[in-house]
Simulated scan of single mutants.
Amino acid sequence: MPLLLLNLDNTLLDRVGPFRAWGTDFLATIGAPLDDIEWLLSVDADGLTDRWDVADAIRDRYRLRISSIDLVEALHDGVVEHTRLDPLVACALRIAGDAGWVPVVVSNGAIRQQDAKIRRTGLDRYVADWVISEEAGVSKPNPRIFALAAERVRMRLNGAWIIGDSPEADIGGAAAMGLPSVWLHRGRSWMESRFAPTRTSEGLIPAIATVLAA
């Protein structure tokens, strides 16, 4: 029974769509131009910008009196509210489980938001467990977080595959441990010269099919 280590945002669950939906609602609430959603997306940088920095940028641009902590919480809660589990992803995870694989989520991010996404979408019913960097005290690509994921389900990393969309965090982590990986390209070209994914896929469902075939 090998491990299937899976990234959360933009792998198991779409993040771009929910963030855009929250941002559009937020801009309408404060009376800002809806075209500013492109600015907001650029500041967010696909989730790579620290949430506090995003909040500060929003407060400065629109001269808001709302506190940064309230804005961060609104962002967290808004993204969670708009996040949904694709039934086809749930089906793919069930097929992987029936084939003997043990799916475990390994995600960087805040425990409050990531845990809420997993539970509220029902994703928790299709994975064996999950490890979030804020709770674990270590982030991808550090091999320790993947080892913690294996420990969480009392398994070894031998034979595991890693699936994710981040070249550095997911594929870099796999390379550091000598594990095979599938990179979800999301329309991007591979630019890293130090390492490369074992396979490349356009989405999670064909990525899981690739692992099962391998």
Score class of each variant (00 low, 15 high):
2 P>N: 13
2 P>G: 10
3 L>F: 08
5 L>I: 10
6 L>D: 09
10 N>R: 11
13 L>D: 02
18 P>T: 06
18 P>W: 06
18 P>Q: 11
18 P>F: 07
19 F>H: 07
20 R>Y: 09
21 A>H: 03
23 G>A: 14
23 G>Y: 06
25 D>P: 00
25 D>F: 01
26 F>V: 02
31 G>D: 03
32 A>N: 11
36 D>P: 02
36 D>Q: 10
36 D>V: 03
38 E>H: 13
38 E>A: 14
38 E>M: 03
40 L>C: 08
43 V>F: 05
43 V>R: 09
44 D>K: 01
44 D>Q: 02
47 G>D: 11
51 R>Q: 12
53 D>H: 14
53 D>G: 15
54 V>C: 11
57 A>K: 08
63 R>T: 13
63 R>Q: 14
65 R>E: 14
69 I>P: 00
69 I>M: 07
72 V>M: 15
72 V>L: 04
74 A>L: 12
76 H>G: 11
76 H>E: 13
79 V>T: 13
79 V>L: 10
80 V>M: 11
81 E>D: 15
82 H>S: 12
83 T>V: 09
83 T>K: 08
84 R>H: 13
85 L>A: 04
85 L>G: 01
87 P>V: 04
88 L>Q: 14
88 L>H: 13
89 V>Q: 00
91 C>M: 13
91 C>H: 14
93 L>R: 05
94 R>A: 12
94 R>P: 00
97 G>F: 01
98 D>G: 00
98 D>N: 10
99 A>P: 01
100 G>R: 00
103 P>K: 03
104 V>M: 06
105 V>C: 08
105 V>H: 02
105 V>R: 01
106 V>T: 01
108 N>L: 04
109 G>D: 04
109 G>I: 05
109 G>R: 03
110 A>C: 01
111 I>F: 13
112 R>P: 00
113 Q>E: 15
117 K>A: 04
117 K>D: 02
117 K>H: 04
122 G>M: 03
128 A>W: 03
129 D>S: 14
129 D>H: 12
130 W>T: 00
131 V>C: 07
132 I>E: 03
133 S>W: 04
133 S>E: 07
133 S>C: 05
135 E>Q: 15
137 G>F: 09
137 G>L: 08
138 V>H: 12
142 N>R: 12
143 P>C: 13
144 R>G: 01
145 I>P: 05
147 A>Y: 03
148 L>A: 08
148 L>P: 02
149 A>P: 04
150 A>P: 07
153 V>G: 04
153 V>Q: 05
153 V>D: 06
154 R>D: 14
156 R>E: 15
157 L>N: 06
157 L>Q: 03
157 L>D: 05
158 N>Q: 15
160 A>H: 09
161 W>E: 02
164 G>P: 07
164 G>A: 08
165 D>G: 07
166 S>F: 00
171 I>L: 12
171 I>P: 05
172 G>K: 05
175 A>R: 10
175 A>W: 09
176 A>N: 09
176 A>D: 10
178 G>M: 06
181 S>W: 04
182 V>A: 14
185 H>T: 15
186 R>F: 09
188 R>Y: 07
196 A>W: 10
196 A>V: 13
198 T>W: 06
199 R>Y: 12
200 T>D: 01
203 G>P: 01
208 I>H: 03
209 A>I: 00
210 T>G: 06
210 T>D: 15
210 T>V: 11
212 L>K: 02
